[in-house]
């Protein structure tokens, strides 16, 4: 029995692996915070920064070695996760579910967490506060970008469906579920527009062919469902990765300046 390659792996095991993908950057952030604060907290800097290698090189070497090391770790994790992911999901399953552990964004998150940790370590100079600030800031930034920014990288497409009634008002034609291509990601609640072009409440509405009773809207009504198609998945991975790599570079620069100025 070979558990590690079992495609029938239970969903709970799958969740653990996905959790690993989410938590890996946090681990990297802790490493980043410790690598700087450990020296600044005690007097290790007196040793490290008075050797023949100048401080600039000391920092750049650390940043490079840790970047390469953690990216390699992320790559291994991605390979494992993608293997399982491919085995687990069917052809029509929504690709977007795996966005947060996608291979491209994970590289961005990893670098971002590392740079954040190093900047926090250089700023606070003490390990425990630096680790706490790193974890908190990482989660805050990730959640903010996932919730606020991600749906807006490109204007969503609109799937629509039309509903109407027969003249007697006894039966409804059409569908209340706008259809969009498989694998799309709905990025908001549907917008409902009546025949007069007014946007109406999306739930508990009433519509009717003329004569329209009071409190009802003229039929037909159109439901618009915003969604991001599956074809945009890799573009969105790229955009989000660029954002996080950009943040990482800015934080590396901050950490570098703080280290060069420290003491």
């Amino acid at each position: 029995m070979c558990l590690s390659l079992n495609p029938q792996l239970g969903s709970s095991a799958w969740s653990w692996i996905a959790l690993g993908g989410l938590l890996f950057p946090l681990l990297v952030g802790i490493v980043g915070a410790k690598t700087i604060s450990r020296e600044l907290e005690g007097n290790g800097y007196l040793l490290a920064w008075t050797q023949g290698v100048p401080r600039r090189q000391w920092f750049v070497r650390r940043a490079l070695v840790l970047s390469c090391g953690t990216l390699a770790g992320a790559a291994v994790l991605v390979a494992v996760m993608q293997g399982w992911f491919a085995a687990q999901r069917g052809a029509g399953d929504p690709i977007w579910d795996g966005f947060d552990i996608g291979p491209i964004v994970l590289a961005g998150y990893t670098l971002f967490a590392l740079a954040l940790g190093m900047a926090a370590g250089a700023l606070l100079k003490r390990t425990s506060p630096a680790v706490a600030v790193t974890l908190f800031s990482y989660i805050a930034v990730r959640v903010t970008i996932a919730v606020v920014a991600r749906t807006r990288y490109l204007a969503p497409l609109q799937a629509s469906s039309v509903m109407s009634t027969n003249p007697a008002g006894t039966s409804v034609t059409g569908s209340s579920l706008p259809q969009f291509p498989a694998g799309g990601w709905t990025t908001g609640s549907p917008v409902v527009v009546d025949a007069a072009g007014h946007t109406i409440a999306a739930t508990g509405y009433c519509f009717s062919a003329p004569p329209v009773p009071a409190g009802c809207h003229p039929a037909p009504i159109t439901l618009f469902q915003p969604y991001q198609p599956a074809s945009r998945f890799w573009l969105f991975q790229g955009i989000e990765a660029v954002i996080f790599v950009g943040l990482a570079l800015a934080l590396f620069a901050v950490a570098y300046r703080l280290v060069m100025r420290a003491r």
């Binding site: 005690g42 007097n43 290790g44 800097y45 007196l46 040793l47 008075t50």
Partner: peptide, 9 residues
């Protein structure tokens, strides 16, 4: 440089 704290790992 040998600082007063004699830092070593």
């Amino acid at each position: 440089y040998v600082p007063q704290e004699r830092p070593l790992y």
